[in-house]
Amino acid sequence: MSKESPTIVKCPQCGIPVVWGEVSPYRPFCSKKCQLIDLGEWADEEKRIPGAPDMSDSDGWSEDH
């Protein structure tokens, strides 16, 4: 019986190798610290997904109408 080797990914925050499996509860991050740093960067809008700008506030549309 051959055992498959685990999938290893790099932590997107610090680059440390992380096993992609139940042994790594914060995957793809290596730790809760790296996970929270990444979340903070998204919350502060330091990271963004490219796309069309949000025009809902500038096109004169309002939920009141």
Rank of each mutant, 00 (worst) to 15 (best):
S58C: 08
R27C: 05
D64E: 15
F29Y: 14
G51E: 07
S2H: 05
I49R: 13
H65N: 12
L36T: 11
K33H: 09
W42T: 05
D59S: 11
K10T: 08
H65R: 14
K10S: 13
R48A: 14
S24R: 02
E41C: 10
E63F: 14
T7D: 04
C14D: 14
S56W: 09
S5D: 11
C30Y: 01
Q35W: 08
Q35R: 13
E63Q: 13
V9S: 10
S58H: 08
C14I: 06
K3L: 08
E46C: 06
R27I: 07
D54E: 12
S24P: 02
S24D: 01
K3Y: 01
R48T: 12
G21H: 03
D59Q: 08
S56E: 09
G51W: 10
I49C: 08
M1C: 02
Q35E: 12
T7Q: 11
K32D: 09
E63C: 08
R27K: 13
P17L: 00
S24T: 02
V9H: 04
Y26M: 02
P12M: 04
K33G: 03
D38W: 11
G40Q: 13
K32G: 02
E41F: 05
E4D: 09
P17R: 00
C14S: 06
E46A: 13
G51L: 13
I8L: 05
Y26S: 06
S31I: 01
S5E: 14
L39C: 01
G60R: 12
G21E: 02
S56Y: 07
E63H: 11
K3W: 03
M55H: 14
A43L: 15
Q13T: 15
D54M: 07
H65T: 11
I37C: 01
I49D: 12
Y26T: 12
L39R: 15
Q35F: 10
C11S: 07
S2Y: 05
W61M: 13
E22H: 01
G60N: 09
Y26L: 00
T7E: 07
I49H: 10
V19H: 02
D64T: 14
C34W: 03
P53M: 07
S56G: 00
R48Y: 15
M1W: 04
Q35Y: 14
K32S: 08
M55K: 14
D57R: 13
C14H: 04
D54L: 11
M55S: 11
K32F: 04
V19K: 09
P50Y: 10
Q13I: 04
C14W: 05
P50Q: 10
C30E: 01
S58I: 15
G15R: 02
S5H: 05
K47V: 10
G21R: 07
P12A: 04
D54A: 12
M55G: 03
P12T: 08
M55A: 12
L36Q: 14
P6A: 04
K3T: 09
K3Q: 11
D64M: 14
C14G: 07
D54F: 08
E46T: 11
G40C: 08
I49P: 00
S56M: 07
A52P: 04
C14R: 00
V18W: 00
L39T: 08
W20G: 00
S62V: 07
R27S: 12
A52H: 09
L36A: 09
